[in-house]
Amino acid sequence: MSATRGPGRRFIRDNGLGLAFGAGFLATLAGQAAAGQVQFNAEQHAVGLPSISFSRYVTSASFVADVAENWQSEYLQFFLYVMGTVWLIQRGSPESKTADQAGRESDQDQRVGEHATADSPHWARAGGWRTALYSRSLGLVMLAIFLVSWSAQSVAGWVAYNETRLRDLQAPLEWREYLTCSDFWSRTLQNWQSELLAVGSFAVLAVYLRERGSPESKPVGAPHSSTGTEE
């Protein structure tokens, strides 16, 4: 770990987290597409229908519904976590603020308007609707991605569900009917429950467990009673 430090190497070192997860995302999405096509064609063969090509599969309603249902739940998770941690406290958790910090905090604490510093983002200083909007931008973007993904899941899931109904010689549903259909809610809730489980258990387990060197953990020697970044 030394000597050669070209600009490329420096870029990789400074952006390891975003690059590693980006590469992992693309690889696993490709894997999902490959495995999904095999599974889809196995189901086609089971009922005597022909195989479909890889390009046809990745543009199918079935594939889009599978991808979108996972996207929506991840962004719902981040939205709920970002918003929940504004108001809700978990005593002893590194993910929580202390009880006296609950809420949106003062302009001074948040360095907005006249309390902005020289290197604050422009919209943090601007005041008015720009600061109000910028102060909610993270939650709003998470919410927007959740809503678009969930809507996409509802449309793609509807089409895919109707394909199976037609195959089974059943009448197709209207989109509005699909929204109250068990298939839609089964796909939706199976993702929501796992996100809520993971986040809830993480926030509580991190009271007592440590991962040395991770910013998601308290320092190994920090007391169980210390909440957030307080000492």
Partner: peptide, 30 residues
């Protein structure tokens, strides 16, 4: 140290591409 704009553009593009893909396929297949 300035954060990398290129990576922000990469992730934003990825997200937008994904969402547009959902909408296009959704519209195409319905």
């Amino acid at each position: 140290m300035r954060p990398a704009r290129a990576l922000t553009v990469f992730w934003t593009t990825l997200l937008l591409a994904g969402l547009v893909y959902f909408l296009v396929i959704g519209a195409l297949r319905r």
